[in-house]
Design a protein around this nucleic acid. Structure first.
Lengths: 160, 160
DNA sequence: ACTGATTACGTTATAACATAACAAGAGGCG
DNA sequence: CGCCTCTTGTTATGTTATAACGTAATCAGT
């Protein structure tokens, strides 16, 4: 099977992936006049390092260990900021957050969630296909979509 | 514009819609040997009556008022049963539950959630379009999907 | 009828996720 | 300086969900 560098399921240079995402985040925030403060930046790093979905309290525990705050609002504020800026996404199915794999790009993201290893891969979903069609028929105006698939990634399929 | 009886946004005979769904649920459970007990049946009725998404604790409050239980597990167990049987769906975006509009049918449901009136309309989404394609490319085996669109229904668009 | 398996329900307690509300500091800018 | 805005610190609370344990009813096989 060929490698799959375009998804989180494939092996890749993790350090480079983190560094690239961080510099993209800095550039984006600078361009928009948004402030990537130390806490916000550190939360993004934590998400990138884990390369998976993390609960807000998992993030908070990391922040606390580093002396950057221990109350829930600290984590939720930083996560909200990152989501607003498109630097992270909320995974509704998991009540968790994940760093964006394509910061700055167009956004109708879809996610593949491996129930084996917890890895979350992001894909661009486009219009949403059948859902978009049904919405158009019904006259429903879509503002945001949630598209999440749960299942098994290639590695976990083999393990099972 | 023509009426849209196939979605919850259109007017319809609510009493008949409830009665029909209930008898379909009874038939399904009987056919499967699943027990539609009083609490489970009542929870389904409550969901059908509201014709929208309800939180577990909203359902629980109704049950409590009727003397059918006041602890969270009572509601969660009944809701879990209904979801397992395909008689209700969980709306991840809202942390809420809604009665199934097409009990017994095939199920890759998608939902349109009106942020104005809270109405939730169910549509059949099929394979998921772009997400399904990306999953196939990545070798990811999908077991369940969450497809939810938030926006404005026709009525609320006019009101705004 | 007795036994054991299964299923559903009752109850207590707590875990896990999320936000309201208010005070205080940092920095730009007229 | 004085004002405004944004960010952060902190307390408290609200909301959603499940673990864990015990009881009752049902039913198949003996």
């Amino acid at each position: 099977m060929t490698p799959l560098p375009e998804t989180a399921f494939g092996a890749h240079d993790h350090a480079a992936c983190i560094a690239g995402a961080l510099s993209a985040a800095e550039a984006l925030c600078a361009a928009r006049g948004a402030q990537l403060t130390p806490v916000r930046r550190r939360v993004l790093e934590i998400l990138l390092e884990s390369h998976g979905a993390m609960g807000a309290y998992d993030v908070l525990a990391r922040l606390d260990a580093e002396g950057m705050g221990k109350q829930p609002p600290v984590a939720y504020r930083a996560l909200s900021f990152l989501v607003e800026q498109g630097l992270a996404h909320r995974i509704e199915k998991l009540n968790a957050f994940v760093a964006c794999a394509h910061p700055g790009g167009a956004h109708a993201p879809a996610f593949m969630i491996c129930r084996g290893c917890g890895t979350v891969a992001e894909a661009e979903a486009g219009t949403g296909g059948a859902l978009g069609e049904r919405a158009a028929e019904a006259g429903f105006r879509i503002e945001r979509t949630v598209m999440e698939a749960e299942g098994l990634c290639p590695a976990c399929q083999e393990a099972a």
